[in-house]
Design a protein around this nucleic acid. Structure first.
Length: 771
DNA sequence: ATAGGGTTAG
């Protein structure tokens, strides 16, 4: 449109209530403020209408309001604040643009306040989650004699349920009943939500009955509450009985099923939703995308992406972050980065006025997911590069994103990257909460630096079960059984209730330290005192515990008593124990069981042939390997990783592609010679076996961990600890080799294998040769 | 004005 007719035309149009023009108004706010300024002195009603249309249409505008400060000053100048309507509209504008500081100041300037004035401010603070302020204002409001309405009350209840403040909520509810204030459905729902968030189901069910079962929202609140409480059956039952299901009902049930690991059922419900003709919302898409990634259904993900584009949801930041996550989790980093192209860092740069708070947050999440995605997919350098870029361009990466990245580093065991993120978290001034703390502990312990994990644990001290469990599991990983038990007891003394994961950590700790008696005691404690049904992991751990201790008959009984004879891991562990205790008879029987259960598991064959070989039964060992060959089962190649500065170096058994290849192999030969002088010798049995297996191509001396150790020695200063990660269990010969190397070179070598850590120092290993 | 989307341990 043209402004050729001058300010009065625009003013008139607005005056006529053409609120749809408002978005354009903001774009030209400097111009418009002058228009307003011109009219303000003559037509106060016009000013009022203008403020009103701004408030009404504010939610559709992404670029934020016009300079509120100017409007505010104008209101003061022309005395509009005296008019309660004007003042309330201006207050609404501040609240809607999340300008709560200014809202508060304006509120104090308003001479007469009515219920609405109080309510606008209270609901604003309620939306911002400032419960304390809400409670204080609510008290003041009543003291001043203003009567709260349904809006005020529901904001207060919302804060109570946010804070799980049952006492206050109940008080307000009682006050309502005393004063004969009836609740409408909406208010009833917020009361319902409060009681459910506080887990007082009897109250909630009573409220639900008194509301005559309310509306869809009430049902949705009930369904999600039962899901949160873990009662999937009850929530599914309510969901089925719900006559009219809206988008949120479907979203709730799909998400809930997914959370509880019923991914297939979640997908089924999603299809039902389509059949019922319920239109997807942005939330549905977001849930569906995560679902397709956890089911590894890239195709479904791509279809959803197509629908997102068709529906025009691709401008939603949340959707974009879900798309990035989906592609990252499906290993499609190229697709993820295409989506991320729509979220350039320039847009997210601090102080860019054109970006809303929501978009900014979602954009940072997307970038953080991209960093984690690189790490999940083993592309550590890309991950670090992206993280550096983010840090350089942005001012603040939020704490949740930091948590995600640290957790990704933990699982990859990349210590230096993890340290960077930790340092960043500190620099930016985020405190270490239970989430960051747990992931840091996990990261440090999985990267081999248990000392750092302890430092975090002692400095932070969160009374949070995940936090404690991380430390206990860390001790377990490093074979510190006694320490883990002490921690566990200390935790119980502090009144923290252990869960199934905690017990798994404790059992594993007992297992890795050979503490049979303690392990049995905690297993009983878990069942009897905490009513936790042992899961397959707990049972596997017990099998390991009995077996390692040489109680093979008990192991066998335990397996059948606990109905875990269908599990590969159980028989594998049992077989290792038979080998350890040289019980060939039992071993043969166990191998038969193992091959029945897992005919296509390469590990089963390797273990079996190893057992035969170590008992000099070469024929049988050869038979097992040829069987493996016939069945077309390939052994997983051994791989080791070591990080040097910002780079991760990968070594594969016998691989010669590394740039420093010549140097590594020649030093390896020299080192082996020198180690032999101090007592090291090849484990002949394994040499024979490996030579046969790999047809003489690869010698045991070229196992990936040996290459990684040598690489580390060549490239780091004397006495620097060397940290290595390996994808399989370390073999006896390598274990021996590294022990001698740690003695000869006076180096600490820390190796993480698939089960646990080995700290080699002065010729010994922390596992006590028991792994 | 009420419900729903992403953080930690196995």
């Amino acid at each position: 449109m043209s402004f050729s007719k001058g300010p009065s035309l625009v003013a008139t149009l607005i005056f006529m209530g053409l609120g749809s023009l408002c978005p354009r108004i903001y774009a030209n706010h400097v111009f418009l403020v002058s228009v307003i300024n011109y009219h303000i002195s003559t037509t106060t009603p016009f000013y009022l209408r203008w403020l009103q249309s701004c408030s009404l249409f504010h939610s559709t505008i992404s670029n934020g309001p016009p300079p509120l400060g100017t409007l505010h000053a104008l209101s003061v100048k022309n005395g509009s604040l005296q008019t309660l309507n004007s003042a309330n509209y201006l207050l609404t504008l501040y609240v809607k643009s999340s300008n709560m500081d200014h809202a508060r100041k304006l509120f104090d300037e308003i001479p007469q306040r009515n219920t609405q004035t109080w309510t606008i401010l209270i609901s604003g603070f309620s939306r911002a989650g400032s419960s304390e302020v809400v409670f204080k204002l609510f008290r003041e409001m009543r003291a001043k004699g203003a009567c709260p309405n349904q809006y005020t009350l529901s904001s207060v209840f919302k804060c109570c349920s946010l804070d799980i403040n049952l006492q206050l909520g109940k008080g307000v509810h009682a006050w309502m009943l005393r004063n004969g204030i009836d609740a409408d459905v909406v208010l009833g729902n917020s009361i319902l939500d409060l009681y459910l968030k506080c887990k007082v189901f009897e109250y909630a069910e009573r409220v639900f009955e008194l509301m005559n079962e309310g509306d869809v929202v009430s049902w949705n609140i009930m369904i999600s509450a039962y899901l949160r409480a873990g009662d999937v059956e009850k929530s599914l039952d309510m969901f089925r009985r719900l006559p009219y299901k809206d988008v949120v009902s479907w979203n709730t049930i799909v998400d809930g099923l997914m959370q509880f690991g019923y991914e297939r059922q979640a997908l089924e419900q999603l299809y039902c939703m389509v059949e019922c003709g319920t239109e997807f919302s942005v939330v549905t898409f977001s849930i569906a995308l995560i679902l397709s990634s956890s089911l590894s259904l890239v195709e479904l993900g791509r279809q959803l992406h197509g629908m997102v584009l068709k529906f025009g949801f691709c401008r939603d930041g949340f959707i974009r972050s879900s798309l990035v996550e989906m592609y990252c989790k499906c290993g499609r980093m190229d697709n993820a980065s295409i989506v991320l192209k729509d979220v350039p860092l320039d847009f997210l740069k601090n102080g860019n006025a054109g970006v809303t708070c929501k978009e900014l947050k979602a954009g940072i999440v997307s970038w953080g997911l991209m960093v984690s995605g690189y790490v999940w997919n083993g592309k550590y350098e890309d991950g670090l590069k992206t993280f550096r870029l983010m840090v350089r361009e942005l001012v603040v990466v939020d704490i949740r994103t930091v948590t995600t990245i640290i957790s990704a580093c933990a699982n990859a065991g990349i210590l230096e990257f993890g340290r960077h993120v930790h340092a960043y978290n500190h620099k930016i001034g985020h405190r270490i909460d239970a989430y960051v703390g747990s992931s840091l502990i996990d990261m440090y312990s999985k990267s081999g630096s248990l000392d750092d994990a302890w430092t975090i644990f002692r400095q932070t001290n969160e009374p949070n079960i995940v936090f404690w469990t991380s430390m206990i599991s860390g001790c377990a990983l490093h074979g510190q059984g006694k320490q883990a038990i002490c921690l566990f007891e200390e935790m119980l003394n502090q009144g923290i209730i252990p869960n199934e994961v905690t017990f798994l950590g404790v059992l594993n700790a007992c297992c890795h330290a050979g503490l049979l008696e303690e392990g049995c005691r905690y297993f009983r404690m878990m069942k009897d005192a905490y009513c936790i049904n042992p899961g397959v992991e707990h049972c596997t751990s017990m099998v390991d515990l009995y077996g390692r201790a040489g109680h093979l008959t008990e192991t066998k009984n335990f397996i059948f008593e606990n109905g875990i004879s269908h599990l590969t891991s159980v028989w594998k562990s049992f077989l290792s124990s038979c080998r350890l205790h040289k019980n060939v008879e039992m071993g043969k029987w166990v191998s038969e069981m193992l091959l029945q259960v897992a005919p296509s598991d390469p590990g089963a064959y390797v273990l079996l042939s190893n057992m035969c070989a170590s008992n000099h039964r070469w024929d049988e060992a050869a038979r097992v390997r040829s069987l493996m060959h016939q069945r077309g089962i390939k052994k997983q190649p051994g791989q080791s990783w070591i990080q040097l500065k910002d780079q991760i170096h990968t070594f594969i058994m016998g691989d010669r592609s590394h740039p420093q290849d010549e140097e590594i192999y020649s030093y390896l030969d020299i080192l082996i010679g020198r180690l032999k002088e101090i007592g090291y010798s090849f484990d002949v049995k394994l040499v024979m076996q490996d030579v046969e297996e790999e047809q003489g191509e690869v010698l045991i001396s070229h196992h990936s961990e040996k290459l990684a150790v040598v690489f580390g020695i060549i490239n780091t200063a004397n006495r620097t600890p060397i940290r290595i990660i390996k994808n399989l269990r370390i073999c006896t010969d390598c274990h021996n080799f590294i022990k001698y190397a740690s003695q000869l070179l006076d180096r600490e070598i820390i190796l993480r294998d698939i089960h646990r850590f080995h700290h080699f120092k002065h010729g010994g290993c922390s596992c006590g040769d028991y792994w």
